[in-house]
């Protein structure tokens, strides 16, 4: 049976992390996707990058200006809480993006030189084997997807030695971007290219420094064939962001939520997803990226919702047996 995980956002709180981890355990999860990106969120990164004002140490946006020992001290209760509840922190999300196009150079340098390596240190401290990153969304700016990848690869090269030293696998995730407000394919939406690139990087470092995070919601937005994509990536697929949407917005909802016909059959190809899992004999953790669900439901129902998500995880995972 596959282990099931879920985002810590909206469950684990800094003032009493052990409570949240205990809740996850009682809801049927054995793993967690640690939402490190909550400590420097996407909107803040873009706003900061474009405001041309560098966040000095001590500023509310400068969480990662703390030293590694300070960060470790900050996350020590989280580590203890997870351990006490028997929850493994299986994966985490590095704050993203780590580069703001046309953004302030100092801020970009901060993201690259401070936030990224410190994220790896936190990941290591929490004994988490996988960290998910976002590739750079630059294809339209640079003229070609290949040029975009070169920039992402430069970033990976910058952090791969440390990842190797700490025994962490960096996982790049399939993304979307916007054309006139509509969501279209972004970095890492070509499974064949991704597989070749992962192999090349790992060969270069003689270690599993790079893997893939398959995001079902992002894939659904751009009509990617789940089964084919997963099967192509095969063993390189290390972690998941399982969630659902209507094929239009990145809603991060519970699988099997959306339909488009009167027959009310799911409009997301969850059967293809199950076949994909079976094809690659996936044996790691099925992790849900469904924090927005917990924001939508009343707090009183949080545990029930978590239980339901975990149950769906077990159903999806049964495909592998």
């Amino acid at each position: 049976m596959l282990d099931i995980g879920v985002q810590t956002k909206n469950v684990i709180y800094d003032d009493c992390p052990e409570e949240g981890f205990a809740l996850l355990a009682s809801a049927g999860f054995s793993c967690a996707d640690f939402s490190l990106n909550s400590y420097l969120n996407n909107t803040t990164i873009y706003n900061q990058g474009r405001s041309l004002t560098y966040a000095p140490a001590g500023h509310e946006h400068a969480f990662f200006s703390q030293s590694v020992p300070e960060l470790e001290r900050f996350f020590a209760p989280h580590k203890r809480g997870a351990r006490a509840a028997g929850i493994m922190i299986h994966q985490m999300h590095m704050p993203y993006p780590v580069y703001v196009p046309r953004g302030d150079a100092k801020w970009n340098a901060y993201l690259w030189n401070e936030v990224a390596p410190k994220s790896l240190h936190v990941c290591h401290f929490l004994e988490c084997p996988y960290i998910v990153i976002h590739g750079f969304k630059l294809a339209r700016r640079l003229g070609a997807e290949e040029a975009e990848w070169e920039r992402t690869q430069t970033f990976i090269d910058a952090i791969a030695p440390l990842a190797k030293e700490l025994g962490i696998t960096i996982c790049m995730e399939n993304l979307y971007e916007s054309v006139g407000g509509r969501l279209v394919e972004g970095p890492c939406c070509d499974a064949k290219k991704a597989a070749e690139r992962i192999d090349r990087v790992n060969e270069k470092y003689h270690a599993q420094v790079l893997g893939f995070c398959f995001d079902t919601g992002h894939a659904n937005l751009v009509g990617i064939d789940f089964e084919k994509f997963m099967t192509t990536l095969d063993y390189r697929l290390k972690v998941f962001h399982v969630h659902d949407n209507d094929g239009i917005g990145d809603l991060h909802q519970i699988p099997f939520t959306f339909t488009r016909t009167r027959e009310n059959m799911p409009s997301t190809d969850w059967e293809g997803f199950r076949r994909g899992l079976a094809n690659i004999k996936f044996d790691k953790v099925l992790s849900f990226e469904t924090a927005p669900v917990l924001a939508a439901f009343p707090d009183e129902m949080k545990e029930d919702v978590l239980r339901f998500i975990a149950r769906i995880g077990r159903y999806l995972g049964e495909a592998v047996q």
Partner: peptide
């Protein structure tokens, strides 16, 4: 061509240009 997943049109035949 698109493929129909219960009303949701996704990538079907020859949608991979390579």
């Amino acid at each position: 061509e698109c493929k129909d997943v219960n009303g949701h049109l996704v990538r079907g035949t020859f949608c991979d240009a390579k």
